[in-house]
Design a protein around this nucleic acid. Sequence first.
DNA 1: AATGGCATCCAAAGCGCTTTCAAATATGTA
DNA 2: TACATATTTGAAAGCGCTTTGGATGCCATT
Lengths: 344, 344
Amino acid sequence: MNLKQLSELLGLSQTTVSRALNGYPEVNEATRERVLQAVKETGYRPNKAAQRLATGKAGSIGLVMPTAPGHQSDVHFGEFLAGLGEEAVRHDFHFVIMPADPDDEVAALRRLAISGNVDALFVAYMRGHDPRLPMLKSLSMPYVVHGRSFGAEPDYPYLDIDNEGAFYDATRLLLQLGHTRFALMNGPTHLDFAIRRRNGVISALAERGLTLEEDCVSHALMTDEQGLLAMERFLQLPQRPTAILCSSTVMALGAIRAVNQAGLRLGEDISLIAHDDVLPLLKPESFSVPLTTTRSSLRAAGARIAQRLIGTVKQAGPFPEQELWKTELIVRASTGPAPQSHEA
Amino acid sequence: MNLKQLSELLGLSQTTVSRALNGYPEVNEATRERVLQAVKETGYRPNKAAQRLATGKAGSIGLVMPTAPGHQSDVHFGEFLAGLGEEAVRHDFHFVIMPADPDDEVAALRRLAISGNVDALFVAYMRGHDPRLPMLKSLSMPYVVHGRSFGAEPDYPYLDIDNEGAFYDATRLLLQLGHTRFALMNGPTHLDFAIRRRNGVISALAERGLTLEEDCVSHALMTDEQGLLAMERFLQLPQRPTAILCSSTVMALGAIRAVNQAGLRLGEDISLIAHDDVLPLLKPESFSVPLTTTRSSLRAAGARIAQRLIGTVKQAGPFPEQELWKTELIVRASTGPAPQSHEA
DNA sequence: AATGGCATCCAAAGCGCTTTCAAATATGTA
DNA sequence: TACATATTTGAAAGCGCTTTGGATGCCATT
């Protein structure tokens, strides 16, 4: 069933039917009713490709999913997508996901943009000096970046959380509790949030004249396993750190196992603060020692970005170009005063 | 830059350029070279919407993502998507994801299909007597189902793992180890895999004249938290089970915490076998007590489904309509002989 | 020189929709 | 009644591509 058939069935022109469906005012209410009724009966749906071709709008937002054989998928990706989806479903938008090799992201993004399949782009996993930024700017298609690109002029539309502030605050809390030996379990080096979190820690420490030793920093994929490995390494250090900052609750999972295996008590021998993206599968409050966290909902960020993107496409009023969300610092049982005992 | 401009630039007709690009034989090799060169220089990309309209093929596979405010996102979804993506990227296919309220899935799927935006559909989270199946059959669009629908005639294209066999085998192993009191931590009741896994357990038990008590079964979302709760319940039972079957390693995580908190030892007081979807973030072999699992890679399943779907769209040879993958039973330290001591 | 075959190329139609411009009808005003 | 003005509808062009059904020119054959 297409427009032509539908209009013939109704004895109307395609024009009128199209107008009736798209809410134009110049069509008689009675006719509109008739059309709507017929749509219901026949189950007619406009062909999106044709609409896209005719209007230039497709009701879809595009994103590139980094993937390759052997490339680790990321819990955070799914959670973020859920947020985007939650908002998109309200506006009858959908996503076009282009899977791409992580090395090919710039090109993939460009292909997606000029394919004519999407109205707007969403970009994540930002890096320092991210090469996608100049490309996006040259594209004349709306986009919003999740995160920021360290080192680049912040003149692009983004939504980010205050990673530096979060880890600064967390570090300060641990300092106030008397800790002096810190370690950081971070995400992959090149990612923007990792850079900022690290800076947050460093600057809080600097205020007390402390530094973050190289061997007290780990950069790795944010998995359970890597958390275990990193923590094991920290615990074997001659000057074992007592305060750990961790970029993900998933990673914290493994880290805590390492603590337990070493016979140490979380919140007493070792204090740990992790960043919590509010993943439904992992609630820091129900850890056996509830986790102190810096919190910010990834899903909410996804929903907000979708809102901005869709709003822009629909020309629904101006949106702030840059948003920086504060995180919450939630104190639970995994942090406590620095142990006094076997000091060096 | 569109076809018309490109062809004018080359002094050729749109026809010829189009043919050159799509590998038709009736174009002079020299001309083809010239066209390809021009494409490289201008960065021309065909408009996908127009291609779609003209050919009826869009190079995309559609799927519905269940989502709603408050709806829990699912790690497994992301992992599966990664598998689909891994294969799709090879063929320059992309996904169109339509987010939809879980209550609206049938309608959403239909909308997606007749939107003319996709060439094939992928469907997951199958339930018993799934209402989407009759709809899909009436659609004349290729599709592949991940999982099966219990109770429905198995005459639709699917890829499933042998859930019943997996849990049957796992249960048998525990029986052989002398266990007699079993519990099952399963996914949501209505889902097909949950039904089959349960059946697997029941039939293995039946062979020894045992039954699975109602209070030894939990159906819940497969999260860490639910795992904890379910296990706590099991441990308070007067006849505490010693053998636990668990539908997910994520859930096992919480379950194990409950075991530890109760002061019990995994692999000695309590034996546990979990199903492992091979999530990169959670490796059963690196649990503090390595987990015995039934294993089948979700990601591999995604890739295979993408392969079948894309192959069908491209008319590349016949694919098996139904595939049932065996799972592996991998014995690690979380299973051991049934404790002899305080028997009832 | 006339014919047929082959290799290349092109004009134009068509995919299903939106939208411009114009026509037809209905309504109001003098 | 005659005219201007809304209101409602339609014909047709166009979005950017593919593809059908010729053209055109060139060569080998008769």
